[in-house]
Design a protein around this nucleic acid. Structure first.
Lengths: 352, 352
DNA sequence: CATTTTATGATTGACGTATATCATTTTGAA
DNA sequence: TTCAAAATGATATACGTCAATCATAAAATG
């Protein structure tokens, strides 16, 4: 009935506790036959290491750093909120989190932040990354120090990061195209794309994916050249207004990047926007409201809450050199106005 | 730098360890001013209970039971796989899981299973529920024994369960309607519904939600009366074939329930099915393949993996009388063929 | 055979909390 | 003032693992 302990294993294996310990913690200097005896005893009685005891004994604390772009961007705001919530709960498991903010899209800024992480003596780092070779040097240093590094939302140079946590942006673009394409019901149409910058890898990938699907499966839809907005809401607003005015044949809009409040404002100004099909990224207060009042039709979300959860789990697994526990897959999530999350999903019970 | 312990708290509060312990574990017999002193010290130095040490000391083990419908239904197969995976990983945290299988949709069977749970001395139970007053008595017993009970996928009578973990089925039906509606691009159409049984609460709710949205927002779409299939694949197959034959004006299909392999087979037989819009529930090997080869267009999934994760987290929180940690929301997830998870299909499935 | 390696045993002290016991002090009511 | 009740202090043990030490036993080496 009680869970077997390592002492039980040792006893059954006919060795001392010390030897059993040498085996399970791979301390070496153990004869092969002893290893086998211990392993057999382990499986025989179904021994599983008690992580509570192990963590306590080890006195391990996990010092994590999250490198996020600074600024008032709705998506990262939300991510920061989730991060704080979870970090708060992780305190009881001896996990401390420092959030380091840095200028968005700045290789130099990221490099400096990584430098400060090197000096900060962390166990693990999750960074919203950039693809730039200038980052390789500090990342290499981190690896040499045994710091676990993962890319979050946007990847880091592949050689020096242990994992990437984020959606497949090409899939996200394809998904948007599928939805917009189907919404035409076989009729012809014209789609205006908006993007922050095609130098941002995620934006580029989304546009590519979008194009693929339209070309493959919706040949009677025309894609207009993307307008660059630098993810700025007022730029999005004026660009949208201009495009709709200049090209009345537009039947759909897809904003690949941020600045959705501008998109929404422009659509609300526009008289015939009701017949437009509109897709955007990331569920925020703005896009949620716009979905509900039918200003936009689809939101593709990357589930920042799940990303943060995964980041913690993966970092801890990497730090402990364990395998990663089974977790839900991360896919581009489609929101329409009917499947929006509610705010209080769990109902606590009244009396005992 | 090191995390403060309860001894530190006691010292700073100017009381003994014993008194500090009496406060944080609410053992009573403590003067108000001592309580205040301890609480102030706690916040002053940011004390957080070390759960590893607490769990170790308490020697707590969590004995959980999951009550799932028996049978080789693809969805529950998948759920069982996830459950086993996670249960396996939870062993190291002293969580044991017993899966109790019972006849689907059988109040009597569920009642008996609950009875065996009462005798089985569990700490928590997650049950795929039914709405039937006959269940109240055993559920009441469980509550009296201090066993945490939650409804999973399908809810239990509200009075005696602490939480429900599952999607909002009305929202799921609304979501399907929204997608099918939009896919008509404003044209008229006719939608055939298929359902297992309208006595199953989830099916009924989905149909209701579906109807709502079509009536509200797609008045030129007609909904044909649902065909009852009892979730049987061959029944679904023949019903689908018959309906398509009898009514060539059908533009869309929505299978509210299970038996998708039959639906897919019928569509693959049918010559003009390419122009049909088709939605179904739950991502399985069958529906995944059908999405990919364009036999069906949308799958609404309840993310059984997330549901299982939540179930564990909520049960443990209930058992420990803690608050529930922040977790990703559970919403009806829309899959098209472009945002499928990359995982290799986990269910080696013989038949539906 | 003597000597070095290598393997094993026996034991111990953290780690931080839960929980219990017993002695002692303080408080409140008679 | 006196005595019971309430509050506090001091202390000890257990939980299971990690990590270390030291002594001894077995095996490999020349």
């Amino acid at each position: 009935m009680k869970n077997p302990t390592l002492s039980d294993v040792a006893e059954i294996a006919g060795v001392s506790y010390a030897t059993a310990d040498r085996v399970i913690n791979k301390r070496g200097n153990v004869a092969q036959k002893s290893v086998r005896k211990v392993e057999e005893a382990m499986t025989a009685i179904g021994y599983v290491r008690n992580v509570a005891a192990a963590n306590l004994s080890r006195g391990r604390i996990y010092r994590l750093a999250f490198l996020l772009p600074k600024g008032r961007n709705a998506f990262f705001n939300q991510m920061r909120v989730h991060l704080n919530q979870i970090a708060n709960h992780m305190q009881s498991e001896r996990v401390t989190v420092d959030v380091i903010e840095l200028a968005a899209f700045s290789t130099e800024g990221l490099k400096n932040s990584l430098q400060s992480v090197i000096e900060g003596n962390y166990d693990g780092v999750a960074a919203v990354g950039l693809q730039n070779d200038a980052l390789s040097a500090p990342l290499k240093r981190l690896r040499e120090q045994g710091v676990a590094v993962i890319g979050l939302v946007s990847d880091l140079p592949l050689e020096y990061r242990a994992a990437y946590i984020g959606i497949d942006n090409k899939a996200a673009g394809r998904t948007a195209a599928r939805l917009i394409g189907m919404s035409h019901g076989g009729s012809a149409g014209r789609i205006q794309l908006l993007a922050g910058s095609l130098e941002a890898r995620d934006h580029e990938e989304r546009v590519d994916g979008f194009r693929e699907v339209i070309f493959e499966d919706f040949p009677n839809l025309e894609i207009l050249d993307p307008i660059m907005t630098h993810d700025d809401a007022s730029a999005v607003r004026s660009a949208t207004a201009d495009a709709l005015c200049a090209n009345p044949a537009i039947t759909a809009l897809y904003n690949v990047g941020a600045g959705n409040s501008g998109l929404i404002a422009a659509l609300e100004d526009h008289s015939t926007s009701a017949s437009l099909c509109c897709a955007a990224h990331e569920l925020t207060a703005h896009t949620r409201a716009a979905l509900q009042n039918k200003t936009i039709d689809f939101v593709i979300d990357q589930r920042p809450d799940m990303e943060i959860n995964r980041a913690f789990t993966v970092l801890r697994a990497l730090i402990d050199a364990r395998d990663i526990p089974p977790m839900p897959d991360l896919v581009p999530t489609i929101y329409v106005r009917d499947n929006l999350p509610t705010d209080a999903p769990i109902t606590p019970m009244k009396e005992a």
